[in-house]
Amino acid sequence: MLAKRIIPCLDVDHGRVKKGVNFVNLKDVGDPTDIAAAYQKQGADELVFLDITATNEKRKAIVDTIEKVASQVFMPLTVGGGIHSVADMMALLKAGADKTAVNSAAVQNPDLISEGAEKFGSQCVVLAIDAKFNPQTQSYQVYVNGGRTPTNLDAIEWAKAGVAKGAGELLVTSMDKDGTKSGYDIELYKRLTAAVSVPVIASGGVGKVTDFPEVFQQADVDGALAASVFHFGELTISDVKKELKKDGVIVR
């Protein structure tokens, strides 16, 4: 049986981890390799790097970052943020990434998914979706540009379309839950996992250790992503795994 995955997410800007990370006594708190290595030690199953570098000319920094991390940290690495072309994907995969996550660029040009999947295989192409519940339509709406711009796409339909195009995994953030620390958006993941057969990673809303078993037991998601609870040491990955084991969820 596959283990459920616990996935810390790191925001990287110009080769440095941007958000505060203070869970261990690292000499250099902003160094992605040090932080990634510490998470590996804690038992993380995968790492997601989100490149939040705004300017294009600085984009090479994320490739260098992944190159460095991949030479010290030996687990699956996913990179998202600002990927616009197959060439962008290629550069990251060559540097040591295992998967590349596309978001806004895939909404703009859905063929980016199929082109990436044909060239590297579906397992290398993750479709990242930022979704927000629309009470009027009682459905989830897709947002792009880091959640700033609404689209007229329905999140469940877009997820299905993305999988049909060749996306091998979905990384779906609930904008309603993100930052609230009130738990994952169970309803969103129930709808998603009923609609697609590829792995789904839940993101947004973790505040306490029991949020993890809740999402795995109530929705058929394959992984749970979190940032701040891990970065600030509120929870360690081993705390989370202990809790999951206690509740009968299979973890590594």
Partner: peptide
């Protein structure tokens, strides 16, 4: 089961 078989297995 989901195919591909992707993730950590025992």
């Amino acid at each position: 089961v989901k195919v591909p078989h992707m993730g950590w297995d025992q």
